[in-house]
Structure formats: structure tokens, C-alpha cells
Amino acid sequence: MSNPTADIITERRPTPKSILKKRPPSPPSTPFTEPEPITGLTPSQATRILQLARTELIKPSIPLSTFELLSSLPQESSSAPSSFDVSTFLSQIKDFSPSEYLDLIEERNCLNKCGYTLCPNPKRNIPGEFKIHKRGVAKTADLNKWCSDRCAVKALYIKVQLDNPTYVWKQGQMVVKVELKEEEETQTTTPAKSAGEEEKLSKDMTKLDLNKNNKTDEEKKVRQMVGALAIERNRMSGTKVEVNIKEKETTQVAQAPTAVKPEDAHLIVEGYNSASKGKKPARDEDDSDDDDDDDPFPTVRLEVINMGKSQS
């Protein structure tokens, strides 16, 4: 590029040899113009398009009032959500983005409620940082978002629908289709059914009179043989002991032992819950005052402990 000062110097002195590489002559500099937009749009057009996008295309964020409304649901604390609650929830939730739905869960947890919007229960409170769960180790922070695993499933069922939305046409508009997880029939109906069955069974059992029906021939034979054996044995030992065998009265059907909570099943070793360390079974708690165990001085020992406490 030619420079006015350089021109003056050339007039006075012989041209100094440049140490720079020779470049092709640069094109004449043009006066400053607006830079050519890459998209072929003028700035005003671009602004207009941006404005249009902001007003119409980009979904507006959910207003705070909606969050407040949904975190106050359900209004009635019954186990089955009312149809009003369900319809409010479904009509509002279809505009939510997945992250906003997570915000809603967080907001409900702030109010100490279960993260599932239609659940009236408070969230559960598992201590510690991690917990062994059915499918491995889970963070308690994640588990404490819900009141139960069933609510977690129901709430995440909605999340999945928001993540991968299915659209339906409704009044000329594309609307995300969201539906609640269907209540599992077996879970809701079995308790009632089984209760009825149990009653019937226990009645049948009480009606059953074992002494009346078992006087068949075979049993008679068996009894005779057993009697003969007993007599023989008595002769051998020389002493006679009277033994009375009594049937216990059956009042109800025997129940299989169950864990307290299904999620604690991994802690149970042959019916013993290893999590409740040092805790005695409930029947042992009021044993302190009856003295029919081997321990000679239980009461004396208790007094010593109490004295030690009061002194410290």
C-alpha cells in the first residue's frame, strides 16, 4: 500500500530495498460500508425475523402462578385424585418443557410434598446419602423426591411423555398429548378381595372339626399301632408318663411372614432385619419387670444404671 510519507522519502534518497516479501498490489480501499450479511438479509430484516421468532415461535416460559397452582394440588387429601385436579393438571402440564417439569417437582419438594402432582402425601425422608434399592444403589436425594416408588413411576411416566412428545390436533393447534399412568388393577383391588377371601377361609377352618371326620379305618389302624408301640416302649423304660395332646384352636389362617417394607427386603436375613441394630423385638420391651428368666438380679442392675445417669 502506498504511503504519503514513503513517497516523500523516495524523492530524497535511493529507494531502500525492502526486506519484506513482494505482495501483489492491494485492491483500492473502498469507503467503509455495512458488512455484507452472510444470510443475505439486511439488519432490519434480521431484527424483524428475530422479533417474530420471539413472539410467536419460541414457547413462552410457564408463569409462576401455574407453578404455584400445581404445587398446591391436590386440594382434597383423598387417596384417589378428584377429576377436577386431574383435569387441571393435564391441561396445564401439556405446555411444560421437561426441565420445567423437573422444576415443578423441585417446587413441590420445597413444600415437603410428594413430587407427583396428584399425590397428597408428604415426601418420604430416607436418611443417609445412598440407599440400596431394587435396581442397585440409588441416591437418597432422588428417592426422597417422592412418597413411594409407585408415585415415582407415575411422575416419571409424565416426564417421559414430555421428553418424547406425541402431538395431537386440538382446535387447530398442535398439542402435546399427556395422559396419566393407569392405576394397576391388581394393586388396587387385591387388598379388598383378599381380605374377603381370608375371612371366608378362616370361617371354613373354624367349622372344620378335625375330631369328627378322621375316624376312618386307616386312621384307626394307625392309632392302634401307635398305641401298641407306646405300650412296648413304656415297658422298656418302666416309667409311665401321661401325655395329653391338644389341638390349638384355629382362629385365622396362618400368615406368611412379611418384611415391613418391600424396599428393605435386602436387609432381612431369615426374618431378622439387620438394619434395626440392637433393637429388640417389641414383645421383649416389657420384659424388664418379670423375673422368670435366668438372670438373677435384673432389677438391681437397672437401678445401678439409673444411678449412674443421674450422677453424670
Binding site: E68, E107, N109, L111
Partner: peptide, 8 residues
């Protein structure tokens, strides 16, 4: 002490 939501 729990967590702070909209209402607080």
C-alpha cells in the same frame, strides 16, 4: 432449612 421455593 429444607429448601427454598417460590412461596418463601
Amino acid at each position: 432449612k429444607g429448601s427454598i421455593g417460590i412461596n418463601v
